[in-house]
């Protein structure tokens, strides 16, 4: 167990270094680039050279990368050009907003898709299965920006029930919670569509097992068979997938954040990337990859807890 954790941490560290290094090199291999972006297109070559020297950017890329990582370890990610604040401030701010939305979505997606997935997989090819399968397949097929547009057209333009933008400020005339409804709805429909299909497949497979047939034949009620025997087994395989949704919910919310002008992490990354705000892009990547790696380890541990046959 301890060995496993150690190995995972080691793997995590390697991946983290690889990813941050790739991003760093892509952005900062040629030192002039950084200063050019800082000073703008009209700076003279002399100015660029001077600032490059002053900022220590003329040193080899490996040295600068090591320095960057050392600073990052202390929580110092440098200064953002776009937001004109320290990167760490902007980063935690935006990450907090995204985690709020992601948390709401996750809390709805998991029970919703487990319920529908199990109901559908319980009686394969029954009418519930058919309808749930079509529903989930259609939901997973509608891209978030399209779903956002559809929901906006219905609930904002036609009915006027909900706000069309979600800047998370209360001076817009809409309480904060109403601003979360539409973004969350888009994410839930899109993501649950996929999860339901995974859980259904797993449930169908479990329901075909001999031990289920035995339970039914010995006269157990169908309800008890499902709840007592099938449920836990059917949730083992989708468990990792469920956890993987956390990743998606951190970086993948960018589309929803753009549709609803939500001040989140993904939108910050997009704005920073378009404005070549390298410090933000690097720090954001570091955070996003760390989240991914952590959920992987948690996933493996949970897998083991759920399924005693697996030892790691």
């Amino acid at each position: 167990m301890a060995r496993y954790l150690l190995k995972q941490l080691f793997n995590m560290a390697i991946t983290l270094f690889a990813v941050t290094f790739i991003v760093f090199v892509l952005n900062e291999l040629t030192p002039g680039d950084v200063v050019r972006k800082l000073l703008g297109p009209y700076a003279s070559a002399d100015q660029v050279e001077k600032v490059t020297r002053e900022m220590g950017l003329d040193r080899p890329v490996m040295v600068r990368y090591a320095e960057y990582m050392a600073n990052a370890a202390r929580g110092d990610f440098g200064q953002s050009i776009v937001f004109r604040r320290p990167v760490s401030e902007v980063l935690w701010d935006r990450l907090g907003n995204t985690l709020l939305l992601a948390g709401v979505c996750f809390a709805i997606i998991v029970p919703f898709s487990v319920l529908l997935g199990v109901l559908a997989g319980m009686r394969e090819r029954g009418w519930i299965d058919r309808s749930v399968s079509v529903f989930s397949s259609v939901c997973a097929s509608i891209p978030e920006f399209a779903m956002g547009v559809f929901l906006l057209a219905i609930f904002v333009v036609q009915l006027g029930w909900l706000p069309g933008t979600s800047p998370l400020r209360d001076d817009t005339g809409w309480p904060i919670w109403t601003q979360l409804v539409l973004p969350a709805a888009v994410v839930v429909l899109y993501d649950a569509g996929y999860l339901i299909a995974m859980i259904r497949t797993s449930m169908v497979e479990v329901m075909r097992q001999p031990f289920i047939r035995t339970a039914v034949l010995k006269g157990m009620s169908f309800r008890r068979v499902v709840v007592k025997h099938a449920l836990r087994n059917a949730l083992i395989a989708p468990f990792t997938v469920i956890l993987l949704q956390i990743n998606y919910l951190v970086a993948g919310l960018v589309v929803v954040e753009m549709v609803f002008a939500y001040p989140g992490f993904g939108r910050m990354m997009l704005e920073a990337a378009l404005a070549k705000d390298i410090a933000i892009v690097e720090a954001g990547t570091l955070v996003a990859v760390s989240v991914t790696m952590l959920t992987q380890v948690v996933g493996d541990l949970g897998y083991r807890a759920l399924d005693p046959r697996i030892s790691i």
Binding site: T15, V19, N247, V250, A251, G252, V254, G266, M269, V281, G284, T285, A288, V289, T292, M293, Q296
Partner: peptide, 8 residues
């Protein structure tokens, strides 16, 4: 590759 959030 897979650890990289795709959109980023």
């Amino acid at each position: 590759m897979l650890a990289f959030p795709q959109i980023i």
